Simulated scan of single mutants.
Amino acid sequence: MPENVSFFAALAVGFFGGVHCVGMCGGIVGALTFGLPAETRERASRLFPYLLAYNLARITSYTVAGAIAGTVGLLGLSLVPMQQAQLVLLAIAGLFMVMMGLYVGGWWFGLTRIERFGSRLWRYIEPVGRRLMPVRSPGQAFGLGLVWGWLPCGLVYSVLIWALSAGGPLQGALLMLGFGLGTLPNLLAMGAFAGQLSAFVRRPWVRRVAGGMVVAFGVYQLMLAGARLAG
């Protein structure tokens, strides 16, 4: 499987799906920074290290989860012949790329239903994050971000299921890393730039072009799987 195609597709999904991330996580960021001194919260230069720590830790959790998913997928596919396993990987990856592209383009939002499956796991993880609040230092923010990375989110969990088909732990980690890096600009943006970025991402034509590109990646993967099956 061409990892570079999957990586950039995941990057696009993370960036253009960032409107969902801002809507869901924006309030969480506000709650996490609530305990900081007023002069820190009101000055972007002082707040940035905290936001960066949160988000780097969040992406670290995504990457670890991707490695786990890639390992699980590899172990499962080791039970079938290698050629069949490769076809299954290509088909699943292509299918999820198509679904992700439909989500990014604003044509279908069924993937968000997946997040209810993570609510049970979150019940055990959330109390750990509560013990780290209120945040007083970037190091503490990093620890809280590691917990935040496991927050139930249909978009995140959908990419994680996609990572099952990545082909191994490294490929799964890279896929989730690409997705996490894609979400970073939307969640780090502040002030006037945040408004401009949000307005750009929300434009229907921008989302449709991006979604169409991801769908095209997925169709390519499905066609490749079909050609190998026919051969």
Rank of each mutant, 00 (worst) to 15 (best):
L75Q: 09
L75W: 15
L75M: 06
L75V: 10
G76Q: 04
G76R: 00
G76P: 01
G76C: 14
L77Q: 09
L77P: 08
L77R: 01
L77C: 10
S78R: 14
S78M: 15
L79Y: 07
L79K: 01
V80I: 15
V80C: 13
V80N: 10
V80P: 07
P81D: 14
P81C: 11
M82I: 12
M82K: 02
M82W: 14
M82A: 14
Q83S: 13
Q83I: 12
Q83H: 07
Q84M: 11
Q84E: 05
Q84S: 13
Q84L: 12
Q84Y: 02
Q84N: 15
A85H: 04
A85V: 14
A85R: 04
A85Q: 10
A85G: 09
A85T: 08
A85S: 14
A85M: 07
L87P: 06
L87Y: 05
L87K: 09
V88I: 14
V88W: 09
L89D: 02
L89Y: 08
L90N: 10
A91E: 09
A91G: 05
I92F: 13
I92M: 12
I92Y: 05
I92P: 06
A93Y: 04
A93P: 11
A93I: 15
G94Y: 15
G94E: 08
G94F: 05
G94I: 12
G94S: 15
G94M: 13
G94N: 12
G94H: 08
L95F: 15
L95P: 10
L95K: 09
L95I: 15
L95E: 09
M97D: 11
M97F: 15
M99V: 05
M99S: 06
M99D: 10
M100G: 11
M100D: 00
M100I: 03
M100E: 13
G101Q: 15
G101C: 15
G101I: 06
L102A: 13
L102S: 03
Y103K: 10
V104D: 04
V104P: 02
V104A: 08
G105Y: 01
G105V: 07
G105R: 04
G105D: 00
G106N: 03
G106P: 01
G106C: 02
G106K: 04
G106T: 08
G106Q: 05
W107P: 02
W108T: 01
W108Y: 04
W108E: 02
W108G: 01
W108D: 00
W108V: 00
W108P: 01
F109W: 07
F109P: 01
F109L: 00
F109D: 00
F109N: 00
F109Q: 00
G110F: 03
G110P: 08
G110S: 03
L111R: 00
L111E: 00
